[in-house]
């Protein structure tokens, strides 16, 4: 049995035909062709599929698609404004917060949620908040510096 799911994706209304068993990640990647949330583990361990759901960072792979009816979903594409990269994205580039890039969209979304909640995080708070996002290339230091830099410049 399928349902018509309607929600806001990066500020624009979208609809998809979904099964009750579909995750939000299934809908984004398979139905809406938004592939920036990555299917790293599909079990909530790696954080590569992190998206904002009404401003809160959630794992798209663990979010039942039908629960986002009428809500706001933001992926990494929704972070830039009118084609302009935001300071956090610029800082990721300047500090080298990405190597192979697989974790990057999840990292950016998680870091955006962190800064929205806590505009001036301490190093330890960043480590704690971001620890659910894994990076095998080991960009943790560069990403931490990028977040600290963004917070500093946001003053």
């Amino acid at each position: 049995m399928t349902h018509i799911l309607s929600f806001q994706l990066n500020g624009a209304p979208v609809q998809a035909l979904v099964k009750p068993s579909d995750s939000l990640l299934d809908v984004l990647r398979e139905k809406l062709d938004v592939t920036s949330p990555k299917r790293g583990c599909d079990s909530g361990d790696c954080g590569a599929c992190t998206v904002l759901l009404d401003g809160t960072a959630v794992r798209a792979c663990l979010t039942c698609a039908l629960t986002v009816e009428g809500k706001q979903v933001v992926t990494v594409e929704g972070l830039s404004r009118e084609g302009e990269l935001q300071p956090l994205q610029e800082a990721f580039m300047a500090h080298g917060g990405s190597q192979c890039g697989f974790c990057t969209s999840g990292m950016l979304v998680s870091a955006t949620a962190l800064l929205a909640k806590n505009p001036h995080p301490q190093r330890q708070e960043i480590a704690q908040e971001m620890s659910g996002n894994l990076c095998r290339c080991g960009c943790y230091e560069e990403i931490t510096q990028a977040i600290l830099d963004t917070a500093r410049k946001g003053e």
Binding site: C41, D45, C46, S131, Y140
Partner: peptide
């Protein structure tokens, strides 16, 4: 059985001074 069981270093494990 899953990535969660495999203890690769995270943000929490990186040294505070690197």
């Amino acid at each position: 059985e899953a990535l969660a069981d495999y203890p690769m270093p995270t943000f929490m494990d990186y040294p505070p001074e690197l």
